[in-house]
Design a protein around this nucleic acid. Sequence first.
DNA 1: TTTCTAACA
DNA 2: TGTTAGAA
Length: 117
Amino acid sequence: MKIGELSAATGVSVRLLRYYEEQELLTPVRTPGGHRSYGPEAPLAVRRIRALLDAGLPTRVIREVLPCVEGDGLFVHPCVSDRLREQLRGMEERIAELEENRAGLAAILAVTEAAVG
DNA sequence: TTTCTAACA
DNA sequence: TGTTAGAA
């Protein structure tokens, strides 16, 4: 199918579909005219990518685990569990850092408002 | 009309 | 991610 059809079938913009290809998440074949041609499994592949993206994974990680994804993307082969835990760890670290930032900013505001009014 | 690439917002 | 320009 053509990119426009895949877009209509998945609700993902044509622009994004081209971007996924650039990130090596999708690998459509080319017609003699240079147009992208997607196979019948493309809609499922896009759903998987979306599921992983919605989990906050960067495209770089998605590229690594995509071959191990099954179904609609909510289940992956156990062999990539470690990679995913690593991501979860990093995510938690970022959250912790943001909490510190929040406390710091709140403190500044509290002191400021107490002094000014 | 649709798609392509590349670059800008 | 959306938009846009010029070409096929």
